[in-house]
């Protein structure tokens, strides 16, 4: 082996060690643990598929699966649409655009817990600024739309909406990626559209979105992966999974509680396996959709996905 090759492998080693010791082996261990009943005192014993059988009947898990999926179905598309809209609004130079770009990044920079505490206050039904804003112009304790103000922390529907609302402000990274991709699009494509007399809607549908499609599909996959986990801190801090019994209980919270509050490691590992399976299914479905788009020619030839 040449000197250069040896040194390159050496440079890769720390990361590889980290990847194996901190991710791949633990993940494998979790998968194995899912078939045991384990606690740190009594050790573990094999129980076969018992944990998984129990999962199917666990109301917390059932609620969490439903909540997680509906959260994904609502939050991921909304976040993407918002990020794309902002990127298209702010991609051209104009006064105040630079400031606006920086402002979009701000909420994402707030540490998760601080962000949770902030929303705990913002969503406070009586004192919170959100409801104060909604009640501007409303009369008799009603909002400007004449309805009762949302009970963010006590009504299940409102609480779930609140969690989604929180997620809509932390789109900084997605925004930056879409913005960068939009800035990299060739001006010739737009000049051509202009020469052909296309109006704004046609330009968006026939030029911008098809050209951005590869980036957008990657972002959808990435956002799905992140969203499954990102619902953890808000639910822990803001709603603690409630209102009871399981209105905002997501899988990541169930996993944490089973492992570190009820100390049922084997069972928690089974929840982790379920979460991993759900992630895999979600990614697979999106992958299929992407392939179908690609075969229809909607996705450009340079669709570069991580791993390819």
């Amino acid at each position: 082996m040449s000197r250069d090759r040896r040194q390159l492998l050496l440079m890769l080693t720390p990361y590889l060690v980290g990847l194996v010791v901190l991710v791949l082996l633990p993940a494998a261990a979790t998968m194995a643990m899912a078939f045991t009943e384990t606690d740190l005192i009594a050790g573990s014993r094999l129980v076969g598929w018992d944990n998984f059988v129990e999962l199917t009947g666990d109301p917390a898990v059932r609620a969490a699966v439903g909540n997680s999926l509906s959260y994904l179905a609502v939050s991921v598309p909304l976040r993407l649409v918002l990020a794309v809209g902002l990127a298209l609004l702010l991609h051209r130079r104009a006064r105040a655009v630079g400031t606006a770009r920086a402002a979009v990044l701000l909420p994402g920079a707030v540490p998760e817990l601080a962000y949770g505490l902030l929303w705990l206050w913002l969503l406070n039904p009586i004192q919170g600024p959100v409801n104060q804003l909604l009640m501007l112009g409303g009369q008799g304790g009603r909002t400007m739309f004449g309805s009762l103000p949302p009970q963010w922390l006590t009504d299940p529907e409102d609480a779930r909406a609140g969690i989604v609302l929180m997620s809509l402000f932390t789109i900084g990274e997605t925004f930056v990626i879409v913005l960068t991709a939009r800035l990299a699009l060739p001006p010739e494509a737009y000049e051509l559209a202009e020469l052909e007399g296309a109006h704004a809607g046609q330009v968006l549908r026939r030029v911008t979105l098809p050209l951005l499609a590869p980036v957008l599909t990657v972002l959808v996959v990435r956002d799905t992966l992140l969203s499954l986990q990102a619902s953890f801190v808000p639910t822990l801090v803001v709603t603690n999974g409630g209102p009871p019994p399981y209105a905002t209980t997501y899988l990541s919270l169930v996993l944490y509680q089973d492992a570190f509050e009820y100390l049922r490691y084997g069972y928690a590992a089974a929840v982790a396996a379920l979460m991993l399976a759900l992630t895999a299914v979600a990614v697979l479905i999106q992958w299929r959709l992407l392939r179908r788009w690609a075969s229809r020619g909607l996705v450009g030839g340079q669709a570069r996905l991580p791993g390819n």
Partner: peptide, 18 residues
């Protein structure tokens, strides 16, 4: 790269215990 992508899909909570 494949292993890295795989690692990104593993939920952080699933690694806590080991």
């Amino acid at each position: 790269i494949g292993l890295s992508v795989l690692a990104m899909t593993v939920p952080a909570a699933a690694l806590l215990l080991p």
